[in-house]
């Protein structure tokens, strides 16, 4: 695969949010305002880039057995650094992202890319993959946040919009609005890609997908055996 396509695949073809369906929690939670979406996107991209580089560098040193704990510690360290820098220099963003800033640690995009890409590829490729995935995450967040902010609050990046400003649909900024907009965006991607999802789809890009599926499968297997 050429270097350019490593970079660009994350933006559209393998968009982490809309195609791989990773990082759903922060996507839904911080997409109430476009500014926060940009902030979250950049913070996650920086963390992703640094972890991918670190893990790719250390991939021959880290023993397979303690691979996940090592990744988690590295990610947590990098997230904390980003957290401290934001608190020092971008306090309003720090406050707006709230608990979702430390929770970048368990964002499946970060661990997913570490496990699936950086642990198997060279430093440059891993860095490009991180940047591409980061941009894809940021763009998806911005699009979703723009829809929610424009219709929900009648503003865009904090600028008041005529008409919509006084006719806002405030449910859009609340939790149900988040679910609905996200559903519509995925449906749109499905339409464009001509993809039809089954109930089992959507977890393949996640590092925990195996455990998740086996958790559901094992129980249903047991259930049917008993029945």
């Amino acid at each position: 695969m050429s270097r350019i396509s490593i970079l660009t695949k994350g933006i559209i073809r393998e968009n982490p949010v809309l195609v791989l369906l990773l990082g759903t929690c922060p996507t839904l939670a911080v997409s109430t305002q476009a500014v926060n979406a940009v902030g979250m996107g950049i913070a996650a991209t920086v963390v992703l880039l640094l972890t991918n580089i670190a893990i790719s560098l250390l991939r021959k040193i880290i023993p397979d057995k303690v691979r996940i704990p090592c990744y988690i510690v590295l990610v947590a360290g990098i997230v904390t650094v980003v957290q401290m820098l934001l608190e020092a220099y971008q306090y309003s963003l720090f406050q707006a992202l709230g608990i979702f800033l430390p929770l970048i640690v368990v964002n499946c995009i970060i661990l997913g890319r570490a496990e699936m890409y950086a642990s198997k590829n060279g430093v440059l490729d891993s860095a490009l993959d991180a940047i591409g995935m980061g941009i894809g995450f940021t763009l998806a967040l911005i699009v979703m946040a723009s829809i929610r902010e424009i219709f929900g609050s009648g503003t865009w990046f904090g600028v008041k919009l005529p008409v919509l400003d006084t006719h806002n649909i405030s449910i859009m900024t609340m939790a149900p609005g988040g679910f609905v907009i996200f559903a519509c965006m995925i449906a749109l991607v499905n339409k464009l890609k001509n993809r039809e999802m089954s109930d089992d789809d959507g977890c393949a890009g996640c590092a925990m997908a195996d455990s998740c599926t086996s958790a559901s499968k094992k129980i249903s297997g047991e259930g049917s055996a008993k029945a």
Binding site: L58, I61, I62, P63, K65, V66, P69, C70, V73, L74, A76, G77, T80, V81, M84, L85, E87, A88, Y89
Partner: peptide, 29 residues
Amino acid sequence: IMPIVVLSVICLIVSGALAVTNRFTAPTI
């Protein structure tokens, strides 16, 4: 031994790096 050593070393390095960053950012915060 190796897994434990590597994990501990990573923990130590990360904590050290955080302590340094904290030193620089704490006054600004």
